[in-house]
Amino acid sequence: MKFKHILALIAFGAFFIPTSLTAQDDMLDMLGEEEPQPVYATAGFKTTRIINGHSFEMNAHGVMDFKISHRFGTLNSGALNAFGLDNALMRIGFDYGLTKWLNVGIGRNGGAIKYYDGFAKVKFLRQQTGVKNIPISALFVSDFAIDANPKNNVEQQPYYFSHRLLYTNQIIIGRKFNDAFSLQIMPTHVHRNFVQTKAESNDVLLMGVAGRIKLSKRVAINAEYYYALPGQLDAQYKNSLSIGFDIETGGHVFQLHLTNSTGMVEPAFLTETRGSWLDGDIHFGFNVSRVFTVYRPKR
């Protein structure tokens, strides 16, 4: 019986000491666990584009993103043309965050390939932990483009305005795996109202994959590849492959890259990429993104 009492005393002591110690050491623990808050994955990519195509990131509500992009001539065009620098295509665009889940944008692709374009981008699944556990982000991007190139010599007559229209619809499924690594896939459908030859199909299905690896807090390396399912495009057109750096400096993101595509609107780089990486038809290019907070939503 006595032995049992001693045991009880030891048990008592054993429990008493640690409890009283923690109670003194960390009063915050007494308050217990805080209410769980949703923790969203942010900044999986530095900006809303990988290189040519969309990333799973969005502009925040009320933020306007002014984008200027250039694609130069091919590196293999020789020293006389400053390895392509003499010859540039450019796109100027404005993206805007209408809400935190809806972005819209317009742009103009000028130079040797002329387009107007506009898009709507909806993020319908947001990667998060905390209250809900959603491992991926998912988006829908719908883009239309107007081919603004002169059409005086096309065989198709009459050539209506509707012949100039091109539509791209895309699902983006992506995940920020950790601070350094993000990956996304982009099943994509392009519909072209008019194509040059009967051998080409009006509808083109593609699968895209893109990712980034962060090299430091402000520099990342991005890559993007679109694979067109065979038999839809003319043989002269290649799959678009781009690789580049994102450099962030506060309000700006500079993207410097090498790509075999020159067009900066979806139908142009998805279905009309002429360059071949193996033949050295590589273009240097850059995007500059500058964001402005034009409207401050109330919290």
Partner: peptide, 14 residues
């Protein structure tokens, strides 16, 4: 029971 008591007392002490 003892541990419950111990816990209670420990909190009581502080």
């Amino acid at each position: 029971i003892i541990s419950a008591l111990a816990l209670f007392l420990a909190f009581g002490a502080s």
